[in-house]
Amino acid sequence: MTLLEVRTDALNTIAEELTARVAESPAFFNNNPLVLGFEQLRGGEHSFDLKALVALCRELGFIPAAIKGGNAELETLALSLGLATLPRGKAKGSTTLEIEKSPPRAKTSTTSDPVTVTSFVPPQVIDTPVRSGQQIYTKGDLIILSSVSAGAEVLADGNIHIYGALRGRALAGVQGDENARIFCQSQEAELIAVAGQYVVDEDLRAQHWKSPIQAYCANGKLVIAPLF
């Protein structure tokens, strides 16, 4: 569920910023349910063209599902458009996509980015074995409910969890995140790497071979530690 926090009643500003945001990662937002938040739109509610905004969102690949924190007038309008209404308050665990009210011309010196995205990248879950010759990369965390075969390669910007044996290569934090970790139920790997620090097969055989391990960076070195 994504929350679109509306801070302006200027529809063309919203359209511009939303289009730019979607263009950055079209697949990520595609067919995503969307909540339209009106808590921060102070004053502009009575004349707000909700129908046009809903049409715009649909056009961009979102599925508007509900409005949040609107006044009675907006809520009636929402219900007539087939949207649910949510009470005011902080929605936990949702992605927030904020569109700020365009600052007045006189104060254009503020350098803050008008669009702030606290985006949560959902983990990719794989429930089949990752076979030799296959390569899987994900921007968030990678969760594999099976084994990674010899000759297969799994990469993630975040952590990698393997609930089977790791016989191939696993590389976590490939964009340089030194806090990323790799977990697996049986360490039989060809290569393990976190944020560019790596250990290969030869050295891995001496470190908890065929046992459950986690791998993480400490003081710029890769540590292979038993899980239990």
Binding site: T128, P129, V130, R131, S132, G133, Q134, S149, A150, G151, A152
Partner: peptide, 13 residues
Amino acid sequence: VRDSDRILGILQS
């Protein structure tokens, strides 16, 4: 066994 693993990957992709 390694080659069979490879072909299984190709089959499912």
